[in-house]
Design a protein around this nucleic acid. Sequence first.
DNA 1: AATGAATGAGGGTTCATTCAT
DNA 2: TATGAATGAACCCTCATTCAT
Lengths: 181, 181, 181, 181
Amino acid sequence: MRKLLDAAAVEFGEHGFHEASITGITRRAGTALGSFYTYFNSKDEIFRALVDDLSGKVREAARSARQQDLPALETERASLTGFLRFAAEHKEIYRIIDECEFVDPASFRQHYQSTATRIRERLSEGIRKGELREGLGEAHAWAIMGMNVFLGLRYAVWGDAEAEEIAELANSILRDGIVKR
Amino acid sequence: MRKLLDAAAVEFGEHGFHEASITGITRRAGTALGSFYTYFNSKDEIFRALVDDLSGKVREAARSARQQDLPALETERASLTGFLRFAAEHKEIYRIIDECEFVDPASFRQHYQSTATRIRERLSEGIRKGELREGLGEAHAWAIMGMNVFLGLRYAVWGDAEAEEIAELANSILRDGIVKR
Amino acid sequence: MRKLLDAAAVEFGEHGFHEASITGITRRAGTALGSFYTYFNSKDEIFRALVDDLSGKVREAARSARQQDLPALETERASLTGFLRFAAEHKEIYRIIDECEFVDPASFRQHYQSTATRIRERLSEGIRKGELREGLGEAHAWAIMGMNVFLGLRYAVWGDAEAEEIAELANSILRDGIVKR
Amino acid sequence: MRKLLDAAAVEFGEHGFHEASITGITRRAGTALGSFYTYFNSKDEIFRALVDDLSGKVREAARSARQQDLPALETERASLTGFLRFAAEHKEIYRIIDECEFVDPASFRQHYQSTATRIRERLSEGIRKGELREGLGEAHAWAIMGMNVFLGLRYAVWGDAEAEEIAELANSILRDGIVKR
DNA sequence: AATGAATGAGGGTTCATTCAT
DNA sequence: TATGAATGAACCCTCATTCAT
């Protein structure tokens, strides 16, 4: 139920999984305590459902921000911009995904693994098009994901920098590295 | 007290903060339950002390891995290598630092903020020496930290790649970016 | 309503009153949860109705097993045989009657009190016909009922001895006692 | 802990297993709720411990009431007298043992099975001494146990007849049966 | 009459913390 | 300082019952 999922996002984001209470969720959702169990079998279950829901939204936010057939670097820039904007509007996502490591480690890995895979596919496409250098693989995807995630934490969740500026900054590393030429 | 901290590292690493119990810590430490409170005032307090302890160890692991007066990129490479080796031997560190976000958000920010600051200082030094390009600032430090942290999670904690290989790979991004030339 | 009573007999017999659920009853009966309350006002009510129903069946099973104008001992033998056969086919009856003590003590007493009364009436008839000794009263009826109930528990519900053999054995006690002559 | 067991006997006897509450037990015992779990791991566990405790007390009550080397019938009389007196002072025992069927069926069977075995051993001894007729076996033991139990329910728990009178009445059945001679 | 989603009181259990020894 | 039994607040979950459709 949408109302419960949305309430759970707020409750879990605010208190974390263990401090969050079913009562808190249903109060925010405006339903009776018992109604929770009409839709979810346990606190764990709604948490997992929420992670899945948010994971999908993140993916969609990054995906829908880029157009077809952009150059590889522009694709990365657009993805990151989309992600940063989403994170700025859903600041709770970091706490929820992070806590997932403790509540449902499988989903936690799944989330990052599949995100990395998507980045890697984009890298492969860039290589195929001759825009990116050979040899980029899974580890590069993880490195890029790490950059993006931490920039999001620092500048979308904790701070509120312009998404484009942060994205350009990350892009410049991918384009030129950090060495003086 | 050392015994308790070490036991806490294992207990928290294994179960996470909320599932961990004082009983579990004292059992591992071989002390009586009540003795715990001779050294720490609460579960939160030992957790914070532990985060501080580990945070220092991480810093030291990265620091001691690099020699004085290396070129800037080599300094980054050595720091990451040191960090990856430490993470491989203390796989619990990720869970503990991550959960810190929920238990003691201040320490969580503190940990990453100060790590970023150290990276930034190294970047500034590199710029000063004319090895790194102008304009590198806090955000670049966060981007680099994000790369390092995620590579550590994927290849030191979940996998067991050679620290040098991963560090070289990250170094190549900083050196050349990912674009074909 | 019959459907619900039959389903309740199975559900209560299998799980006991407290572990049984209205949902379980309606599922077995093939009706909707809400329909339950068209026929019964509460879980207690259907339980009481069921006890009453079973109590009547037990009485009828014992009554219909004996013919008119049998000698007193033969009447007891036939009653017990009928009861044992009924119990073997309705093993749930013990659990249901027993649990009645907790759910509806009045029905519980009522069941045994009226059973004892029927035995006592048969004893009185036997005395009147000069077949049984004087002085047999309510307590003897309870003693006989106790014998019958426990033999039923042991050999009809838990075991599966021949009803006739058990009935003969009980009859021999009533006929001769247990003393060597 | 004795206090908790005694309190549990009262609480379970009064409310039955399911309606009884741990809070009720600790309130009666005068301890804090949490202390319950220092001694018992669950509501089930204390219930089982209580059944075991009471089962032992019943056995002891019956055993200690008879002297060595009494004639077989006198042994039965004394045992029943002891049991009736115990039941009169511990009226809750019936409800507790009965409910055991639902909470811990194994203990329930165990209780009656071992009681029957003790009666049977006494019967065998009586046969050996030439006082009782041949052929008395397990089923006769169950019949006698059933008599005793039901007489206890009716006259020790629900009523308050003299134990000796009830025991003599039961004895008369074992001695002479119920037939007129 | 039939349906089944919604309701919310109630209780078992955990475990950080205290404190008398 | 060390010990561990005692404490009690807090919370997840169940399920009989209601009621709008």
